[in-house]
């Protein structure tokens, strides 16, 4: 554990809590992509299968359980409790265009051709692109509520901080995981356009609205 890793995890935790608070307080899931949340649920479920096979630490186990629990609760809010506010017309990203290539890539490029390892690799690749339905939705509607922007900023920062963590770990421990690093770079790059809008607009008190 180092400061970058801890900040990354806290940023991830904050993103999830911000999203839940937004939905709970406004009794609405408007502007939130259910498809991205389903992809995140797939990511967490696939990656944290090791909850059953290996124990790392109390911290590790608690975070995994929290991430899995909250993502399924988020899906419940979107597709059941606050279904009436869900904007399915604008959540039209074709997720099969992500799942299929990512699944194929996980089979071809992995650390070890073993079931759990392939599933872990799949989760890493899928996470890197799981936000695309959400970003697609914002580009379709042309706007994002400020609270949704805070959510995305925290969520994007998390992997950017992990990149710092990996640089640190490479020098401090000789730790290097090429698959995680490349996917993390891709993931962070996908947020760059959003980060720019966040810094130039949201931080100055304006909400994100894109020209039609």
């Amino acid at each position: 554990m180092n400061i970058f890793r801890l900040c990354g995890d806290m940023s991830h935790l904050a993103a999830i809590i911000i999203l839940l608070l937004k939905m709970w307080k406004t009794r609405s899931v408007a502007g939130i992509s259910g498809k991205s949340q389903i992809l995140f649920a797939t990511v967490f479920t696939a990656r944290y299968l090791d909850l059953f096979t290996s124990f790392i630490s109390i911290y590790n186990t608690c975070m995994k359980v929290f991430f899995i629990g909250t993502v399924y609760f988020t899906i419940y809010l979107i597709y059941m409790k606050f279904k009436a506010t869900y904007d399915s017309n604008h959540d039209s990203f074709r997720v099969e265009f992500l799942i299929v290539p990512v699944g194929g890539l996980a089979f071809l490029v992995n650390h070890e051709f073993a079931p759990l390892e392939i599933i872990w690799t799949f989760s890493i690749y899928l996470e890197s692109v799981a936000i695309l339905p959400q970003l697609f939705m914002i580009s379709k509607t042309g706007e994002a509520e400020t609270i949704t922007s805070h959510y995305l900023f925290a969520l994007g920062s998390y992997r950017a901080l992990y990149l710092c963590n990996w640089i640190y770990r490479y020098y401090a421990e000789g730790f290097f995981d090429l698959i995680a690093v490349v996917a993390g770079v891709v993931q962070t790059i996908l947020y760059c356009d959003f980060f720019y809008l966040y810094i130039t607009k949201v931080m100055k008190g304006k909400k994100i609205s894109l020209p039609a």
């Binding site: 890793r5 995890d9 290996s54 790392i56 630490s57 590790n60 991430f67 490029v109 650390h111 070890e112």
Partner: peptide, 10 residues
């Protein structure tokens, strides 16, 4: 490929 690495990260 490489050996599988332990997954202590989230």
């Amino acid at each position: 490929g490489d050996d599988a690495v332990p997954k202590d990260e989230l």
